[in-house]
Write a protein that binds this DNA or RNA. Structure first.
Lengths: 340, 340
DNA sequence: TTGAAAGCGCTAACAG
DNA sequence: CTGTTAGCGCTTTCAA
């Protein structure tokens, strides 16, 4: 691989001059010289070495993303949003899956630091562990967090409480009173907020909270199926279920069908997130839409501001919207189906 | 951030000695000295700068992945497989989404080269464009490809032809003769191979190929819906459809239902890939299972061999298996459902 | 307008 | 066993 000296030699100039034309420096360079240099660069197919540049400039044009699991469509969509903005700005992105293990998080923070990443975006992990917190602070890393945060970092947030409230209120509005909830695991602030929204709205509608109607899932369709079965097999089963994400909602619907229940007639189900496949399920899933791509994009925009030192609002809150589909209300023209 | 000199000063040794204990070099270092150095490292919370090290050693412990789109669950799963192996081996991974645009691919190759990535894994793009090919060759990059390849790179491959054959044969076995096919876009070798498997098997069963039964999709559920509708609305509609991936199969099923058809009674549907949600659909999707995680893991293992210079088989072929579910055959104990 | 030289943080050859 | 030093490829003063 050719380096800056090869180019300089070929163009009969110094490496300083090459550097100047490569970087379009303000420093004036004779036009003829410029052309000679450019020609040499072309012939050698020269590209500046980013490592050397990064070492000198303390800037790598690389940021890191730390998430629980890229194979979860929720995070995949967020990552895509981050990348779209990062790519536009010339940043590369390294990806790190923690599977929620705190030791993983810490390892990746140090790794990113060794590699001189220009910033880090966190999503989905629990970052209030004593160790993680102190490390992050001490390292004074540029960090943006997606989701709620206890620590003092810029954050992109989602109105999960309000979203859950809308989901539950929708169910009350169409006549349900016994509403089950399949939540997320302990330690997830997202799960906690969605549960809070559920509880609040139950209370507001004059219904007493029943712990028996609330389960803690693992975000997977399988856990939705298992917990859905539990919820529906017990006596005094709910007439509606809110699941804290779409895959668990699918699991719950499968559980209902396995028990011979018809959705939404015998059981209404609401999910969370609106992943791409949700509208293709049968029945199409009513769900609280989270703008995942925008979440990612906004977090990267924040990080860019943080890096460039520009002023910006340290917290950005995204509203949620309820996407009503047929897992809670009957389709309008059912009769039409018979025509075919 | 402390550097190696800070540590050396604090421990009253030279930077060479610090380097030796940090890298557990074979070079002997007095145990007491070692302890002093380690103590200094601990106190300063020193971490070696990966940029400086990389610049010197020509090794960054970072590899790049170039894929069409991480929000596609197929690629997300592959990436997870890659990362699991990479992480284990101490490698970081940068991710690059091309959306299949050739200019994007080329840009990323150069970017990765500037950053001195130790290797590149390609998946899903068309890498037989004249320019891409020559660049890759000329740069003599360490590359592993997932999927079929025209160029001379190590590759992890999937028996897509055989997989499609199994899917189609299964449909013949359960009595279908008019079988539609919703394929992938032009330029995708995966799509082409799956189509080839379809054609072969149709012929082997003595059925004449009918172009009207074959459509080209975009891998999305929406295109599956649209093309499914086309296929089913025409006269002489198929009694079964094979879709080249699961999301399109879901779209096709939705189309069938919208037309009042019952799956699998009126229409049998087979998908491809077996993404995590496929078994939760209604009906659960019969599909050709692709071991996506293993594909990713195997490609990274190959790349590791390539980097370390070890001998290894340049091509690894993964078999596919047909996962039979209820989108092609009735569930066994339908009667049981009535019990509830 | 151009060039010489210092130095980013590190490893490894060489000397002691 | 330990230290000195060259140099990886680059940008940026400072001089000319």
């Amino acid at each position: 691989m050719p380096n800056i000296l090869d180019v300089a030699l070929k163009a009969h100039v110094s490496i300083a001059t090459v550097s100047r034309v490569v970087n379009k420096s303000h420093h004036k360079v004779n036009l003829a010289t410029q052309e000679r240099v450019r020609e040499a660069i072309r012939e050698l197919d020269y590209r500046p070495n980013a490592l050397a540049k990064g070492l000198l400039m303390k800037k790598t044009m690389t940021i890191g993303i730390i998430i629980p699991d890229i194979s979860n469509p929720y995070y995949a969509e967020i990552v895509r949003g981050i990348q779209d903005v990062a790519d536009q700005a010339g940043y590369a992105v390294t990806l790190h899956n923690t599977d929620k293990k705190p030791e993983g998080i810490i390892r990746y923070i140090y790794l990113l630091r060794e590699k001189s990443a220009d910033g880090i975006i966190f999503s989905g992990g629990i970052i209030n562990g004593q160790e993680t917190l102190s490390i992050l602070k001490e390292l004074r890393e540029r960090v943006v967090v997606i989701g709620r945060h206890e620590v003092d970092f810029p954050a992109v947030m989602v109105d999960n409480i309000g979203g859950a409230a809308r989901a539950v209120q929708h169910l009350f509005d169409i006549g349900h009173r016994r509403i089950g909830f399949i939540g997320g695991p302990d330690g997830s602030t997202t799960a906690l907020d969605r549960l809070t929204g559920y509880k609040n709205t139950i209370a507001q509608n004059g219904v007493t909270f029943s712990p028996r109607l609330v389960k803690k899932g693992m975000w997977t369709p399988k856990s939705g199926y298992l917990l859905g079965t539990e919820l529906l097999k017990g006596k005094g089963r709910p007439t509606a279920i809110v699941a804290a994400n779409d895959p668990m909602a699918f699991g719950a619907i499968k559980a209902a069908k396995a028990l011979g229940l018809v959705v939404p007639k015998d059981l209404a189900v609401v999910g969370f997130d609106d992943i791409p496949l949700s509208s293709y399920f049968d029945p199409p899933l009513t769900t609280v839409k989270i703008p995942m791509h925008d979440l990612g994009a906004a977090s990267m925009t924040m990080l860019l501001n943080l890096i460039s030192g520009e002023k910006f609002k340290k917290v950005k809150l995204f509203k949620t919207t309820l996407q009503v589909r047929e897992s809670t209300v009957e389709p309008l023209k059912k009769a039409d189906r018979k025509k075919y």
